[in-house]
Computed example of a mutant assay.
Amino acid sequence: MTTDTGTPPHLGCSIGTDGRITFDLPPGSPEGQRLLLRLRPKKGQPEKDLHVLDFEPAGERRRAVLDPHLVLAEGRWDVYLLGEPGAERQRPRPGPRDLRALVDGHRRRRPSPVSVRIPYVTKDGHLAVRAWLRPAHAEAEAVDVTGRSMTVRARLHGASLQEGAVVSLRLRGAGATARTVEPRAEDEGRSLSFTVDYAELAAGTPSGAGVWDVFVRPGAEAPRIRVGRLLDDLADRKEIVVYPPADVGGAALRPYYTVDNDLSVEVSANA
């Protein structure tokens, strides 16, 4: 299942505001191909979640559509082409990707559950889809840092602030160790802002080094909601959006986005 040059065909894609993803094969592609989406398994685990889509004629091209109502579990979905029965699956080369509908995605209100999909190119040059699926989400719309604190503006999707709402920073690997901050509510409880004092956070890190994960608890009895940045066209933020560290009492503190695009604060000893 190759092109005339023996190389895999290019597969373009575009995404709509509703999350619908359209995959396009170039003119001249053989009929009978299907598209396979495979949830990338953890190391040493078998693959379990698979979705197969048919290509349909669309002018000179052939097109497969991933419907927004088809639920994708959270994770990274690799894209393959399937040919004749028994033929080996093939990774297509990425073609043009139209992600314009995602650029201002944080401005659109999302119901629960919050489903996010972003087509992207992997480090080894293959097409994949990054998916998130959460009961609710707190989108970090802005993170302003100074030498003494960080102030975050966020918007809730699938939830709203109620009485007893707090922002909770939890020290990773330290059980129930947490610091709480009172949020400032805006826009009928859907938007909020909060400021984290670096000195207090550094003083609450017993070993002098650690990572604090940021959550919003929208009500006294409500489950925690992770704060992150998911609603735009960046599938991986960690190495792209980088905030400067601040020196506070011999410790360096910096907010950063994790591999899942969630917001955390790293505390480390100054060299």
Rank of each mutant, 00 (worst) to 15 (best):
G75I: 07
D124R: 11
F215E: 03
R184G: 08
V129P: 03
A128Y: 00
R40A: 14
E60H: 14
H69S: 10
T22H: 03
V103C: 06
L253G: 01
G28W: 11
P92D: 03
D78L: 14
G189K: 08
L36R: 14
G219K: 09
L82G: 08
G250I: 12
L39F: 06
L81T: 06
S112Q: 10
G44D: 10
G59S: 07
R134F: 04
D236L: 07
R254L: 10
L36T: 05
V145Q: 06
E56M: 13
V196H: 02
L37G: 03
Q162I: 00
G250A: 12
A185E: 10
W77R: 05
R38H: 02
G173R: 08
D4F: 14
L72M: 11
K43S: 15
V143K: 01
V121R: 03
A101V: 03
D233K: 03
A138W: 05
E47A: 13
T177A: 15
M150V: 10
H69E: 13
Y256R: 11
P119Q: 01
E188H: 12
P46W: 00
R190Q: 09
R109A: 14
A251Y: 08
V265K: 01
R226V: 14
D49F: 08
L133S: 10
A178L: 08
A246L: 04
T195S: 12
A128K: 01
R254G: 03
D54M: 07
D24C: 09
L70Q: 13
T5H: 09
D144N: 10
P8N: 11
L169D: 02
Y120D: 09
D78G: 03
S115L: 13
A87F: 04
D144V: 12
V265Y: 02
F215Y: 15
G175V: 00
A269W: 05
V71W: 05
S112V: 06
Q90I: 14
A220D: 06
R155C: 10
R229W: 03
A87T: 12
P30D: 14
R237M: 04
S191M: 12
W77L: 04
L102F: 02
N270G: 11
D67A: 12
G164H: 09
P113G: 07
P96L: 10
D78E: 14
L72W: 05
D197E: 11
R38D: 08
A220W: 03
R63F: 09
S268A: 15
D18S: 14
